[in-house]
């Protein structure tokens, strides 16, 4: 499995913010997208996720196995957590597991992995910012996707959780997954490629 981007350009509001990006990520590879605000990190991730059309160029998944295309092989963790405040943590996770299919860890196990076991009955809206983020990370674990697209994944996390999340990503890479993360903070991924986006500066 390889994720290939060729001559990828992206634009926002009719203005090109990056152009001619080429990269190849093999199984077990990680790509860190860094750069100043407005450099197009989130736009790049949304283009890879198929939520935005690229201005030109093409991104695809080769030898994707049981997944028909790139979009279906992606977990996308955006700025928002995609959870409903009125539903309990368990209801939220159970929904995404059922909806996304390919169940991997069960919900108790996933909550234990992010260190939040025992709060599954609370409404998601009661949790703190960091806890919400950790539940959203648990969502990556309950169903299987080889490609993780993470947009500022550690925003709001404390040191311990950051370390734990680094371990989770390492585990995912060791299983032959692919991680693409847009971030300002070091994520603790060794051997990751870095794509520095310069923005308009």
């Amino acid at each position: 499995m390889r994720l290939v981007a060729e001559k990828l350009s992206g634009e926002r509001g009719g203005e090109t913010i990056f152009s001619d990006l080429d990269f190849v990520i093999a199984m077990g590879g990680a790509l860190l997208v860094t750069g100043p605000n407005g450099a197009g990190k989130s736009t790049l991730l949304r283009i890879i996720a198929g939520l935005l059309a690229p201005a030109s160029g093409d991104v695809r998944l080769e030898d994707s196995g049981s997944f028909p295309d790139l979009q279906s092989a992606c977990h996308y963790l955006g700025h928002q957590n995609a959870m409903k405040p009125a539903l309990s943590v368990r209801e939220n996770l159970a929904f995404w597991q059922a909806f996304n299919g390919e169940p991997r860890k069960d919900i108790d196990e996933a909550l234990e992995t992010v260190g939040l076991d025992g709060i599954d009955h609370l409404p998601f809206g009661y949790l703190s910012t960091g806890q919400k983020r950790r539940i959203a990370i648990a969502k990556l674990l309950v169903s299987h996707r080889p490609v993780w697209l993470l947009d500022e994944p550690t925003a709001g996390l404390d040191k311990v959780s950051e370390g734990r999340f680094a371990g989770l990503m390492q585990g995912h890479l060791a299983e032959g997954g692919i991680v693409i993360a847009a971030t300002h903070l070091p994520l603790g991924l060794e051997g990751a490629q870095e794509l520095r986006m310069e923005g308009r500066g």
């Binding site: 996720a49 198929g50 939520l51 028909p68 295309d69 979009q71 279906s72 992606c74 996308y76 955006g78 700025h79 928002q80 957590n81 995609a82 959870m83 409903k84 405040p85 995404w96 909806f99 996304n100 299919g101």
Partner: peptide, 16 residues
Amino acid sequence: RDDGSLDLLIMAADRH
């Protein structure tokens, strides 16, 4: 859309 679920619902278009 406000909580980001819509993106994921759209991304699941291949399954659903």
